[in-house]
Simulated scan of single mutants.
Amino acid sequence: MITLSKLAKIFHTKDGDVRAVDDIDLTIDKGEIFGVIGYSGAGKSTLIRMLNMLEAPTSGEVDVAGRPMHSLSKGKLREARQEIGMIFQHFNLLWSRTVAENIAFPLEIKGVSKQDQKKRVDELIQLVGLDGRGGSYPSQLSGGQKQRVGIARALANDPKVLLCDEATSALDPKTTDSILDLLVDINAKLGLTIVLITHEMHVIRKICHRVAVMEAGKIVEQGDVLDIFRRPKQAMTKEFVKQVTEPEETEEALNHLLDREGIGHVLQLTFVGGDTQRPLITDVVRKFDVDISILQGKISQTQHGSYGSLFVSMNGESATVQQAVAYIREQEVEVEVIHGG
């Protein structure tokens, strides 16, 4: 569906050249939700804007739905952009227009008849959960409702691809989850390919099938979300995974516990998929002469299954503890010895 080849973008400034996107190769499959995560300045916003040529690449190729976006004429590019919807962090709504008029705007530009406009707008209002709000103005809506208008407007021309540029960054956590649920629903109902950029691993964890991690203009790691959670390789990726698996309060609590005498060996166990349902701790206690105390645990859901992280304290003879740790690893559960190893 989307193929990027040797894609690069260099900005020329008075302080010198800035390579915002650096020689990226990437393939995004039809119908998947693909996430690009990185901190501010990583190049992710520039990357997503090159998918619809809002930002022209310095070099490289962009192919979207069989169209070479980088080499299209202005007329052909306008035509191609009708198959690529985009939603933004700050909504970009027309404040003097009602909800229905905002959604209809792309259809007006395309020259769709008033009758067909109304039919399509009514369908989209229902799809995004804004029944009864068609006559409201943006100033009368909550942040989540505004973003729903933005999503409906982006879908007006029945695009094949939806680009989301930090679409939930301006929203509170509860509203963010409702918008993410809507995007998953749209992906399932319409078979739409969705590409989103974010700096929040919670967003990736909740809805993406695959993810690319960007740093300094490059993709440093990519893969299935569950695999990235299970075995992050790069330091940047580990930082992002830690956002979900080890919240700040967990780290503070563990640091406090490590100061206590007799804490023993502190282990982090990582479970993936069906492993999260297994009575592993019970098995270990029955097989080995060790005592285990659960310090902290969390299970999260991804699009491809569940992911669990469990912190435990294990006390016993050193050799027995090592045998127990080896047994846990034999069960294909990731083990990291945080303390006492």
Rank of each mutant, 00 (worst) to 15 (best):
F34W: 13
K9E: 07
Y327N: 11
G217M: 11
D63P: 10
R49W: 03
I228F: 02
I328Q: 15
D17F: 09
G132M: 05
V64K: 02
S73L: 04
K287S: 09
A170Y: 07
E246L: 10
L155C: 06
L196C: 13
T13R: 09
L180W: 15
P138N: 08
R133W: 11
D131A: 11
A8E: 12
E79G: 08
L94G: 06
L180M: 11
S73R: 08
V285N: 06
G308F: 03
G297V: 04
E79V: 04
I281Y: 01
R148S: 11
I194Q: 10
F288I: 04
R153G: 06
I299Q: 03
G75K: 13
E61P: 15
E166R: 04
D22R: 09
N187G: 12
D25L: 11
V203W: 10
Q243T: 00
F91R: 02
T3P: 05
T282S: 08
P279L: 01
F288C: 09
K189S: 14
E334D: 13
V64Y: 01
N52M: 05
E330V: 10
V312S: 05
T237L: 00
V290T: 00
E83H: 12
A253S: 09
R133N: 09
I179N: 14
A326L: 07
I194R: 06
Q331G: 06
D116Y: 08
N187P: 11
Q117V: 12
L183F: 12
G262C: 02
G66I: 02
K76P: 10
A326C: 05
Q331C: 11
P159H: 08
E246P: 02
G308K: 14
Q303C: 03
V321N: 12
S40Y: 06
R260K: 00
I299S: 03
K242F: 00
S71N: 12
E215K: 11
I328H: 14
G297S: 09
L196I: 06
E83F: 07
L54S: 09
L295I: 05
T58Q: 05
G43S: 14
V21H: 12
